[in-house]
Design a protein around this nucleic acid. Structure first.
Lengths: 117, 117
DNA sequence: GTAACCAGTATCCGATGGATACCTTCGGTC
DNA sequence: GACCGAAGGTATCCATCGGATACTGGTTAC
């Protein structure tokens, strides 16, 4: 069953590569409370550049994880919103982020002692 | 609580960046049944090159996720094994891979129709 | 003497990520 | 009527990283 992920040709692996992307994870977290505009996302997610954010959002939209809705207004308004498929990613992503928060001290301690000794 | 992950300076974010790496995920899966040697890992994980596998294993060891044990034998033998910390990553990673397997069809269908339409 | 075994390095190259600057359209301001 | 600012991006350039391929070193088996 999970052996498939080891085969680079396997679709499961392709999906893993996409959702394993660090920006995708943060985008899903950013959209968990409803639609957000481009600049809102850019401001929420520290350190992301507009080019990379655009690439990430386009790729996620192509994968059916979110929708991109353009309002014909001035100044322009574009809203991104998770699809039900994208919503279903919340739980596993929360599992990862919860792990990170619970074990960040252990990891950082290990990383420190690896440097010094 | 989870807002921390949005700050690039936050340790939680640093941890996320590491465990979000696609090779790290596959290494954890590869080691779930016990220790493995370097070439075993290289062969299990399709598409990984020795250089990148070495980098990944070294980084994971520095973060305390696995141990590297060198046996003074000829030919050389090196075994990698998850630490308890690394073992604790199994559950969240399974959540992600299970999601990928369950929804791979939806994602691939969306990706297809994004290409054609 | 030479070939194989294992666990990596060494070297090189193209793709990717990131920083910075710029564009567009419109409405409001002076 | 020139100018500025807003939003949502592109354009351009450069550094870094990932990946492909080749090679090393010590020992033992042939």
């Amino acid at each position: 069953m999970d052996g498939d992920a080891f085969n680079p040709e396997c679709p499961t692996r392709l999906v893993l590569d996409r959702i394993g992307d660090k920006w995708s994870v943060l985008v899903v977290l950013s959209l968990r409370k409803g639609p957000r505009r481009f600049t809102e996302l850019r401001d929420m997610i520290g350190g992301v550049t507009p080019k990379v954010l655009t690439q990430t959002l386009r790729a996620m939209a192509a994968d059916g994880l979110l929708t991109r809705h353009v309002f014909a207004e001035v100044p322009p308004r574009v809203e991104y919103e998770l699809t039900p498929l994208g919503q279903s990613l919340q739980a596993p992503i929360r599992a990862i982020t919860d792990w990170a928060e619970q074990h960040v001290n252990e990891v950082m301690a290990a990383r420190e002692s690896a440097l010094t000794g």
